[in-house]
Amino acid sequence: MEKKELIQKQIEKSLEILKKLPDDRKFFINTGVLLVEVSKKEAEEYLKKELEGLRGNT
């Protein structure tokens, strides 16, 4: 499997886990050293954007 496919699969898996969690939980985006708190929606959008970016590069 290509590296890109693996990353895509991982993002899909993360999205699946994320969707199952209640909205009132805390979510964070890793920005390198720091974790920034975001809403569930923002985390979902971030992952979807990452996925689109990967698909767009094909």
């Binding site: 990353i7 991982q10 993002i11 898996k13 993360s14 886990i17 994320l18 969690l21 939980r25 805390k26 979510f27 964070f28 985006i29 890793n30 974790l35 985390a43 971030y46 992952l47 990452e50």
Partner: peptide
């Protein structure tokens, strides 16, 4: 009772202890 765990792709989520242990 709340643990922040990486769920991959640069995202971490707050889970209950049980959820974190299962994950």
């Amino acid at each position: 009772d709340r643990i922040v765990v990486s769920i991959g792709s640069g995202i971490s989520a707050e889970l209950t202890t049980e959820e974190a242990l299962t994950q």
